[in-house]
């Protein structure tokens, strides 16, 4: 292992990690927003909107991010919609992640037993009080493991944006291997960078899960 080579090139990976984190962060934030709206629409059975939501979820879950990105980045400009690679990456991640987040949140809402709603009603809570004090806290606790898993999933999926020429971690790795032929060192930097990004998220996720786990406490 050529340590000095790794030290010399580490700064490329710092910048690349920044790109990965930046895109993932905005992708995740928008995915959560989309997820909340879609989950609410799905459980509330609004005519037209609920079936449309279902259709979006099926389309987004059953197609690969790479194809979604190619369509956004190369296809849409032909319809007059030209977005930068960065915008495409964030939109792509949000499009993909929105459905995953929606499913996790819907699962959380559906996991709240009916008896909870009924108990609240018998105790005289208003529908609004029932939602904010009884349903949402419990739904949140059962949705959190799924949401955390989706965050990690989206950060990992963001590696695909290298395919539309964004200088993320994967892109820099490939570049470095092409220039230097120091394959092992480049791959080691790749692994280390992803571990530095993903391990803390995984740890924070575990802590969150424990904190919000009403059922097992």
């Amino acid at each position: 292992m050529n340590w000095s080579f790794m030290a010399q090139n580490a700064h490329f990976f710092v910048n690349a990690a920044y790109v990965t984190v930046f895109i993932s962060f905005f992708g995740v934030v928008f995915a959560i927003l989309i997820g909340v709206v879609c989950a609410a629409l799905e459980v509330s059975h609004v005519p037209i909107l609920s079936p449309v939501t279902r259709g979006y979820i099926e389309l987004s879950r059953n197609t690969p991010l790479l194809v979604q990105l190619y369509f956004l980045y190369f296809g849409l400009p032909k319809l007059g919609i030209s977005w930068s690679a960065q915008t495409c990456a964030v939109v792509g991640l949000a499009f993909l992640g929105g459905s995953y987040m929606a499913e996790a949140m819907r699962g959380g809402l559906e996991a709240v037993p009916r008896i909870q709603r009924e108990s609240a009603r018998v105790l005289g809570f208003s529908p609004r009080q029932t939602l904010t004090h009884i349903i949402l806290p419990q739904a949140l606790s059962s949705a959190i493991p799924g949401v955390v898993a989706n965050v990690i999933f989206l950060v990992k999926e963001s590696s695909v944006v290298s395919a539309i020429a964004l200088a993320d971690v994967m892109y820099v790795t490939k570049d470095l291997m092409g220039i230097s032929y120091d394959t092992y060192e480049s791959l080691a930097l790749l692994i280390i960078t992803y571990l530095i990004i993903l391990l803390p998220i995984s740890v924070i996720g575990t802590v969150l899960e424990r904190r919000f786990d009403y059922a097992r406490r």
Partner: peptide, 19 residues
């Protein structure tokens, strides 16, 4: 589980092939 699948593909394709 923690590595992106694309990273695993690179490791297998470029790394294993040489190793």
């Amino acid at each position: 589980r923690i590595m992106p699948q694309l990273a695993l593909l690179f490791i297998a394709f470029y790394g294993f092939a040489r190793a």
